[in-house]
């Protein structure tokens, strides 16, 4: 297990190579173990991709090596444990194509598929949240069928609306807030993915499993 400093106030614990759902489950276990029993000085634990970043307060740090050893001990114990049940399953309704998915045609053409086939492939995928970042509540979803992998647009859009569902490289995800963005937009969800003042601000958490469910324009309108 390798621990690498991130600046002077965090340590990155590399949990595994590759990024399949088994690694994501281990990352979640390691993060949970450190959070349950945080070594003194630890202020925040962030699971993201194949690693766990542990933030500490350098002003009150007495022994960096001891902190790393304590983090590593917890991580190793968690790794050795059998991963608990897989993460929650979250279903995200998506209205694909049309004005909601201006890049669906490009994505389908690149994959040598019709629009309908591309949608079927996207909505049939089994996804998992590798990390949340970029925007509050923005889940980087792994598990995108390889045929749909599409490079980011060469010029990002200056405004992508909240709810937009897109593909960026090997990842897919939905924009929780309006923002500039370079992903290929294929649809839109009526769900509010982030709301700072509700009890559970983010719909998605690292390690969650995600499925997309196609909905019609009428259903979309009823959601809103």
């Amino acid at each position: 297990m390798t621990l690498t400093p991130l600046g002077d106030s965090a340590v990155v614990v590399a949990v595994g190579a590759g990024l399949d759902d088994a690694v994501v489950a281990r990352v979640r276990e390691v993060a949970a173990a450190i959070e349950r029993d945080p070594p003194p000085g630890v202020v925040e634990v962030v699971p993201a991709f194949a690693s766990v970043t542990v933030y500490y307060d350098p002003a009150h740090l007495t022994d960096y090596a001891a902190l790393c050893a304590a983090i590593e001990a917890r991580a190793l114990r968690a790794e050795a444990a059998v991963p608990a049940q897989s993460g929650r399953l979250v279903e995200i309704p998506v209205c694909y194509g049309g004005e909601f998915g201006p890049d669906l045609g490009d994505v389908a053409a690149r994959a040598g598929l019709s629009r309908e086939e591309a949608v079927a492939l996207h909505q049939g995928g089994r996804y998992f949240v590798q990390a949340i970042g970029f925007l509050p509540g923005f889940g980087y979803l792994g598990g995108l069928p390889e045929r749909l992998h599409t490079p980011r647009r060469p010029t990002p859009r200056t405004h992508v609306p909240a709810g937009a569902v897109g593909i960026g490289g090997s990842l897919t995800g939905a924009y929780p807030l309006g923002s500039p963005g370079g992903w290929n937009l294929i649809g839109r969800t009526p769900l509010k993915l982030f709301d700072a003042v509700r009890a559970e601000p983010a719909l998605l958490h690292p390690g969650d499993r995600v499925r997309f469910k196609p909905i019609t324009r009428e259903e979309f309108a009823r959601w809103m």
Partner: peptide, 10 residues
């Protein structure tokens, strides 16, 4: 705000 970086809040 501390404690919310895991859900992408800076």
């Amino acid at each position: 705000r501390r404690g919310f970086r895991a859900i992408g809040v800076p």
